[in-house]
């Protein structure tokens, strides 16, 4: 594969980086990233990955664009209200960069479809807003041996960690089981500043770019936390739990499980 002049110009800021170069750009163009959740985190992640020239993006989301989404979900615009989020996101991505092929799933990611969905991708971004989905994505990625970026945001706080097979802990090492429905607030109930989604979703995109290019050090073995009010980033070292039910020594979870979603997350 050789670059067109237009690609050389479009991706010049990537290629000019010693760590990326033409080879890294080709890896990006051949790269496949699945973004689960085309919302607060998925919007900036998808846009930066599309802009960087990640050639194949998958988007999964069951919702339609709502006016209350636009405060942070910058991949959607006012005229997209009412459209399926994956369709609205696909249109934005195609307008941003026609090099990118977009595959969409308009629907919920479930224990039944998650494994076949992630199978074709190199890296997965968890941009979901609820714990059943986060545990489902974690378990499926561990079982299928797929690297992924976990993130969560609420109010003025965000956190993320990267899982790479056989390196460091998985999300379930940190949190062995999801909290009961409605025991812990999600950002729908508690609020969040849009730029928080931008900061954390962009960091997820950065992890995907690094992974695809094979450069730098992934955020494995540390949970990066961000507090916007004190403007503090902290890297908390975390180690694998031998008793982890999915990636531990004697796993008891050998296939993805659906947990019941909290009632308020079932409706838009």
């Amino acid at each position: 594969m050789s670059f067109t002049d237009e690609q050389l110009e479009r991706y010049s800021r990537n290629i000019i980086l010693k760590e990326v170069g033409g080879k890294g750009q080709k890896k990006l163009l051949n790269g496949r990233v699945l973004i689960i959740g085309a919302g607060g985190l998925g919007a900036p992640a998808a846009m930066y990955l599309a802009a960087a020239g990640v050639g194949h993006l998958g988007l999964a989301d069951a919702d339609r664009v709502d006016l209350s989404n636009l405060q942070r979900q910058i991949i959607h615009t006012t005229s997209d209200v009412g459209l399926p989020k994956v369709e609205s996101a696909r249109l934005t991505i195609k307008a941003l960069n026609p090099d990118v092929t977009v595959q969409t799933l308009e629907g919920l990611v479930t224990a039944e479809n998650v494994s076949s969905l992630i199978k074709d991708y190199d890296f997965i971004i968890d941009g979901t807003d609820n714990f059943p989905a986060k545990f489902l994505i974690n378990d499926a990625c561990v079982i299928e041996g797929k690297p992924f970026s976990h993130a969560g945001i609420i109010r003025f706080q965000g956190q993320l960690i990267t899982y790479i097979p056989h390196q460091g802990p998985c999300y379930r090492c940190l949190f062995p089981a999801p909290p009961p429905p409605d025991a812990v607030p999600t950002c729908r109930q508690a609020g969040v500043i849009g730029a928080m989604a931008g900061v954390i979703g962009s960091l997820q995109a950065m992890e995907a770019v690094k992974y695809l290019c094979g450069i730098g050090k992934p955020l494995t073995g540390s949970l990066l936390t961000y507090d916007a009010l004190s403007m503090e980033f902290r890297k908390i070292k975390v180690t694998k739990r031998a008793t982890c039910p999915v990636c531990g020594d004697n796993p008891t979870i050998v296939q993805p499980i659906d947990y019941e979603a909290p009632s308020c997350d079932l409706k838009p």
């Binding site: 670059f3 002049d5 050389l8 110009e9 010049s12 290629i15 000019i16 170069g21 033409g22």
Partner: peptide, 16 residues
């Protein structure tokens, strides 16, 4: 026929 930074980019890609 090209301007900075595509100048260097083209050279880099040719060296690849």
């Amino acid at each position: 026929e090209v301007v900075c930074p595509v100048t260097f980019v083209k050279v880099k890609v040719a060296l690849d």
